[in-house]
Design a protein around this nucleic acid. Sequence first.
DNA 1: ATATGTTCTTCATTTACTTCA
DNA 2: ATTGAAGTAAATGAAGAACAT
Length: 355
Amino acid sequence: MELELSLGDASSKPFAFMEKAHRQVANKGLGFSMGLGLGSAGRDQEEQKIHEVADDDDDDDGEDDEDGRDQRPSTGLPLQLDLLPLAPVPRNQASHQGLTWPSDNGSSEAGSSGNVGLPARGLDVNRLPSTAVTAAAGEEVEDGAAAEVESSPNSAASSFQMDFCIYRGGNGGTKRDFEGGEAERASSRASDEDDNGLTRKKLRLSKEQSAFLEESFKEHNTLNPKQKLALAKQLNLRPRQVEVWFQNRRARTKLKQTEVDCEYLKRCCETLTEENRRLHKELQELRALKTSNPFYMQLPATTLTMCPSCERVAATSTAPSAAASTATTATDPSTTTTANRPRFYPFSHQPSGAS
DNA sequence: ATATGTTCTTCATTTACTTCA
DNA sequence: ATTGAAGTAAATGAAGAACAT
């Protein structure tokens, strides 16, 4: 039995303790290992682990690796519902997880999937009317890529774009209905932006836009530039909005994971407390045994040892003479205790390999 | 090898907006 | 109908890493 609480430096060997724990569990079901890495190491994997299952099937196709930076082998991390931050993932790590994202050829593929049965109603709450967009194109100083999208030949007429118009529709339960409120809000936003660029207007994404982004996020939690542009085009958003949405989404995922981690650690703490209580009790019993048996009184030290064969824990002790001789010659007690000292095994058998 | 600039990411924070009492 | 607190999520800016030159 081994109690291991690892704090920090989870990046050095991320799964060492997990392997140990799994071995022990497999052996006798008594192993308990707990790893806790604190710090920034491996924060990226939290999200990745969450989606690893979904992404596993796609790891090989690599259709999104055209820009070269995203080409890297699969990490092959084991699927674990553990809470252990892993080693840091290289940038754009998620890109290799292989989603079938739009490529250069006009993104019609993604567009067809992107339509997801949503009706095109020709009003976008997050975009100015096409004429206004044209007029305001010069004002898009925030994101040069947005202008690129707008000016792209592919974007002309937006035959494949999703046109979102429902503002938190359905049971989202806003007080405003679409027919009146949305058009008004959209136009009012446009006028606000036109009035002064200083007032930051937060553009609420529609339910459909959020759902589509959510689906995309399930496939990948990060975007490469092409994916970002394609998504933006599909959703009729600025690329910067898509990027920000993914950033915030990753933050939410991490926050949720942190909550789960806290819950898990709480349970682990309770378990360890209970284990500690049990070990204290066991220690008291052993001390009582020691005082009641004069044989043990002559031994210089009593330690708990696990039998390598049966892995039962028992008290072992060194013989006085042997202990004295090693004490005079040994430079490193930790190495001499097991290597040189004759051992007393209180088990019913002699463990294999024991001298 | 080193310095510099660019791009991208995460993180903490701000702020617009919604919901509810 | 109004208001203010609380919650949510979009947006911002700083800092750092990776990469190219």
